[in-house]
Amino acid sequence: MRFSDYCSLTLVIGLFILAALLPLIPDSDYLMSLALPIAMYTVLATSWALFSGPTHYISLATGAFYGVGAYVVGTGIEFIPYPVLLLIAGFSGIVLAGLVGIATLRLSGVYFVIFTLGLAELIRQLVTWIQNNFTGSRGLYVLTDITENYIYWQLIALTALVFLVGWLIKRSRLGFALRIIGNDELVAGHCGINSAGCKVILFMVSGCFAAVVGAVMAPRFTYIEPSMAFSPELSFQVVIMALLGGVHRLWGPLVGVIPFTLLWEVIASSFPTQTVLLLGVSFLLIVYFIPDGVVGRLEDLVKSMRLARPGSNRG
């Protein structure tokens, strides 16, 4: 590592420590009510971009993994220790992503999108059916002594983990393989790369994180119901935020998550009945006007400024 790498590493660690200290500020309830969703969406959007960025496969299934994670905790909280439940949730996410991946990722992206589009709804139907026929009750109570602050710290730790995993992948053979696949899948095959396998592994990583986030958030709900845990809006918001920030950099989604969560806070409180419409409209605005995300825009800007300056050294 070079000196500048150490600098940015120190900076990142410093930021994480600052973020982790946030709950210790007295009377920070309002601040926490913003920081918690920001942390949650950062993990979700970053792990989403980890898969969808390099492969260009759009996953609309974040809500499904999240719901599965929440349900694992909801079902097991009375019999199994909480940390074990987190592991089980992550494992369920991996298995689900693996199954979906094996069925669809050999084929073109369209099949994958379609499959993930209805996945949350499918699992919701299955869970509802199981509850109606075998357990008798529609919802689940998650009663724990896990506080809001504790949830927040877990999310911060997950954020650190997702960044670490993303960084490691980028430096690994897998990351290199993905860049080649993103360029030309046929060439990738001729280089001996197993494209479908790479995609499945990455989707499993992404699904694992989403499921664990769901599990971490479950105690906050206290009462879990299928229509709540498997909401399609969650998948949608994650896609919006990641695209808003930009998916080609590890920290890109973060740039989208912060403003969007804040904006959303305002919208949801001022126009509570029209959230879905506004969500759709803001999404369209992003797709049409900033397709490469804010980070992509900024990088273009920087590039053109450098080109404009004569004698500048590039390359």
Partner: peptide, 27 residues
Amino acid sequence: ARTFQLVRILPTLSVVENVMAGAVFGS
């Protein structure tokens, strides 16, 4: 290993990385 009738290089990879692509995953 092969080359293609219509050249297929990997535009977003550097020149060196283009060559590396052949030496990481194959034999």
